[in-house]
């Protein structure tokens, strides 16, 4: 069979997975654990060294995630911008220690406050990137398999949430259609009052439609024996060597990050003690 080029993306994915790497094939629970471990490594202390090591590792490992990196760049632009805003606030507001670097009117930055700012910037990214990236690399269906089979969550609940989340993607499309329909009826634009009223009319229709769809979906699911006791799962959610390797690697990186900060004396724990 020729390679299938799908022009319609799965609306549920923030960043599309374009290659199936070893990391992509890992169990979703492993991916969540890795993200949590790396986050803990960056969370414990506010300093450039520990956060920098986590961030550096995350960026180096980015190609392994199999994600479309170009799409990642265009869709995650808000992460560095947000981090930069946080850093800016810190540079101005943090304790002013060390030599003065910038002093323009009310804006005063010192080496000390700039250091804190850099730490905040790097740390924000080190916290956000592993989570966003690994979350994108998780297939919702794989996750539900893992949640039911390993964490023993109730299967009807997990599947219902999974099916409902697909409807959410559909709602986005529906909203686009509704916006077009409002324009076609002559109610888009105009005064703020008119816009607001037409917006509420649109929201009402969306609500009606989503309740209808939800009811139909529930009926269709029941119509295929959903809710019958003794459900099987055709895919076994498994852990392999790759899972172990990735987990160990994440722990090592987190430990190295913390140890380096301690050795270099930059350790600045969030909980003093």
């Amino acid at each position: 069979m020729t390679r299938e080029r799908v022009t319609v993306e799965d609306p549920g994915q923030l960043i599309p997975v374009v290659r199936r790497t070893a990391l992509v094939r890992c169990n979703p629970l492993t991916k969540i654990a890795v993200a949590l471990i790396l986050m803990v490594g960056a969370l414990l202390s506010i300093d450039v060294v520990s956060a920098g090591i986590i961030l550096g590792f995350s960026l180096l490992a980015l190609p392994l995630t199999g994600l479309d990196l170009k799409a990642a760049l265009t869709r995650l632009w808000f992460l560095p911008v947000g981090a930069l805003l946080a850093a800016w606030g810190t540079a101005i507001l943090a304790e002013k220690t060390g030599a003065t670097v910038v002093d323009v009117g009310p804006i005063l930055m010192t080496t000390g406050s700039l250091e804190s700012a850099a730490a905040i910037f790097v740390r924000a990214l080190a916290l956000a990137i592993p989570l966003v990236v690994l979350a994108s690399a998780i297939d919702p269906r794989d996750l539900s398999d893992a949640l039911v089979q390993h964490l023993r969550l109730p299967e009807t609940v997990v599947i219902s949430i999974l099916a409902a989340s697909r409807l959410l993607g559909l709602l986005v499309l529906e909203w686009q259609t509704l916006s077009m329909a409002r324009r076609a009826r002559g109610l888009a634009g105009g005064s703020i009052l008119r816009r607001t009223r037409s917006l509420f009319a649109g929201i009402f229709v969306l609500l009606v439609q989503s309740i209808r769809r939800g009811t139909t979906l529930a009926m269709a699911m029941e119509g295929r024996a959903f809710g019958r006791p003794g459900r099987t799962w055709r895919r076994r959610s498994t852990f392999g060597t790759a899972d172990a390797v990735v987990l160990v690697l994440a722990v090592v990186v987190a430990v190295v990050a913390v140890a380096s900060a301690l050795v270099l004396g930059t350790w600045n724990p969030i909980i003093p003690g």
């Binding site: 799965d10 549920g12 919702p140 269906r141 999974l162 099916a163 697909r166 559909l170 209808r212 769809r213 139909t216 979906l217 009926m219 269709a220 699911m221 029941e222 119509g223 295929r224």
Partner: peptide, 14 residues
């Protein structure tokens, strides 16, 4: 086994 009218509302998985 039940099949309904609206194609969009009976797709269950992605």
């Amino acid at each position: 086994g039940l099949v309904l009218q609206d194609p969009n509302s009976q797709v269950i998985f992605s």
